[in-house]
Design a protein around this nucleic acid. Structure first.
Lengths: 345, 345
DNA sequence: ATTAGCACTCTCGCATCGAGAGTGCTAAGA
DNA sequence: TCTTAGCACTCTCGATGCGAGAGTGCTAAT
């Protein structure tokens, strides 16, 4: 009984399209006029009533136009919105920018955040790629002064960990290089667990260093997300729905406070595979902070080896088609780059 | 003729104090009552009139209380505000947190931003320490796959630059280590210019690598500020003066858009020595974006070797005494840490 | 020099009102 | 049965007016 007719779908799509564009409740008469519909406002009104009953539209007050509900947006995103793609020229520009950023992961991240923010006119978030099970790649010990040593640990995902440490006994750079080399040979390609259970005989120094390496690898493993890169915070403040500062504040908190953000990511894309795009509309009953917002998230990288998250936060009235294709496109670029990086190594 | 009397100073200080606390224009009668003044409201009014003529106070409209002008705040900060210091317990807590962060520069930065934001209830900004004239410290070449090599370049300020590069000819890890070692010996302690003008005979590979090293060091030198760390953006949105989103947006842009920020830093603290705290009140006629804000900035680190900037952005109605002492304190901690790092190396 | 008294001014909240927009319903037409 | 013209109704929004309250500036007395 509750099946939605084709015409209703059409009108729903129009209403959403118009509302996304204008941010004003959509009335029947202007809608007919604007899109040159061959049906009368009265008919549109009837259909709107039906859509309101089905829960896809609502009216802010008795006599105002219609506004999409969260359910309406969801239906739109799932079934009505065509699979669009970014214009070829836009794509080329973006790819060119990434190309110029060279091999510098930090610059990729910043650039990705910037591109997402500008393309979607919203706030963006990118987390640096991380290996779920990082593998040891290289260890370097650099003598600095007295017993102070700079340890540089390189992992398979490209992560570089630097840590100052103080030796029990002074050691020359030659000795340190020897130790680093032998440990590198021993551990290369091994995971934390494998290194931890090594039974090879070692000197005291080697033993201590191994412990340190294991500790650092574990510490990195515990951090759920890598470094965060954000952009477009001020952009999103320009949206009319954030005219009330409390609304903006509530939404932006989720980008600023790590625990909130990690909760969100953990319960959505963190476990998903790279490729798919997830759309969260209006907090989905779970995230009070996102009540008035939508979030488009995707995971990028190579599953099981090195992955990261990227996404966009904007008002619920968001140009979904464009945003989703942007997110998908940027995720694809970053995935390619991570892949390149891994295959090169 | 325009000398300000002691009593006027006293009243000005009271008005500012009260306004900072309440965010409401301060009237003569409530002021007398609240602070149990031994003079009458009428006298206070006369003094307020004088202060208004001198440009330290103004009235939002004919019949409202007084509000401090930018000039008023400046006078207050320069001459009226006593040198306060953070409570000892607060200091201890902060120091403890830094102590726990170990030697990880990234964690220092994040922590510094967080402490600044929470202590001053405003938005904070910290830039990573950078060497003005970075010196070469160590070079490492790590063979990864085929002709792909990961170059790790360590500079005196502690900066680590990683860059993937592709060799013209394949080379073994042994060969690479040899080259890295000889170049390290050659360049250690040298500045870009010195490396660039080296006349030592080299192999083609060494020559190419030297060029790369020089390029990277120059690139880093061009970037005026290191990585940025921000916090407290949502905190500052809670301040009543940012109830108008456009006001908040205007102010926050300066934190988000690098060019704006670099302009601000360049023309204020970037050339100053670590230690001093600079207070910018209401844009000082130069920064339109900061019209309604104040910024407290300081430089930290070791002059000429490695320095960074930190600061706080909040409404003009800001608890200056507390904010300034917080900024000074955190700058001191970071300076100590940078100093330690440098002396250890 | 200080202060009590007072008239004056301006904001703010509240109620009122009319215009405008858009609806829901009804009844007529295809 | 579906569509549509017509119409009364509802609700928002901006303008207007008004009274209360707060705080000032001035004057005159101490």
């Amino acid at each position: 009984m509750n099946a939605i007719t084709e015409r209703q779908k059409f009108i729903l799509a129009l209403v959403i399209h118009d509302y996304i564009e204008s941010a004003h409740p959509v009335g029947s008469k202007p809608l007919v006029k604007k899109y040159n519909l061959s049906i009368s406002p009265a008919t549109v009104r009837n259909e709107m009533m039906a859509l309101t009953e089905k829960g896809y539209l609502r009216q802010p007050h008795t006599s105002a136009g219609r506004v999409p509900t969260e359910e309406g947006y969801r239906f739109f995103v799932r079934q009505l919105m065509g699979q669009t793609d970014l214009p070829a020229t836009t794509k080329r520009t973006i790819i060119h920018q990434f190309y110029q950023a060279g091999q510098d992961v930090t610059r990729w991240m910043r650039l990705a955040a910037s591109v997402l923010a500008h393309q979607s006119q919203a706030a963006s978030l990118v987390t640096a790629p991380r290996s779920e099970q990082a593998r040891f790649k290289h260890l370097e010990l650099i003598s600095t002064h007295g017993r102070q040593v700079l340890m540089v640990l390189v992992l398979s995902g490209g992560e570089v960990i630097q840590q100052m440490l103080t030796l029990a006994e002074p050691a020359s750079q030659e000795q340190l290089s020897m130790v680093a080399k032998s440990l590198s040979n021993l551990c290369t390609g091994k995971s934390v667990d494998e290194i931890q259970s090594l039974q090879t005989p070692m000197t005291a120094l080697e033993h201590d260093l191994t412990r340190l390496v294991v500790d650092e690898m574990k510490r990195l493993g515990r951090a759920m997300t890598g470094e965060l890169y954000r952009d477009g915070i001020t952009q999103v403040l320009a949206e009319p729905e954030f005219g009330q500062v409390e609304v903006a504040r509530r939404a932006l908190r989720i980008l600023e406070e790590r625990p909130l953000l990690e909760d969100l990511l953990t319960r959505t894309v963190l476990s998903s595979d790279p490729g798919g795009v997830q759309v969260l509309i209006g907090g989905e009953g779970t995230w009070e902070e996102l009540r008035d917002c939508s979030v488009v998230l995707a995971r990028y990288g190579v599953s099981g080896l090195a992955t990261g998250t990227l996404g966009v936060l904007g008002p619920m009235r968001m140009p979904y088609a464009r945003t989703i294709s942007t997110v998908r496109f940027v995720a694809g670029i970053l995935s390619d780059m991570v892949e390149d990086m891994l295959s090169e190594e």
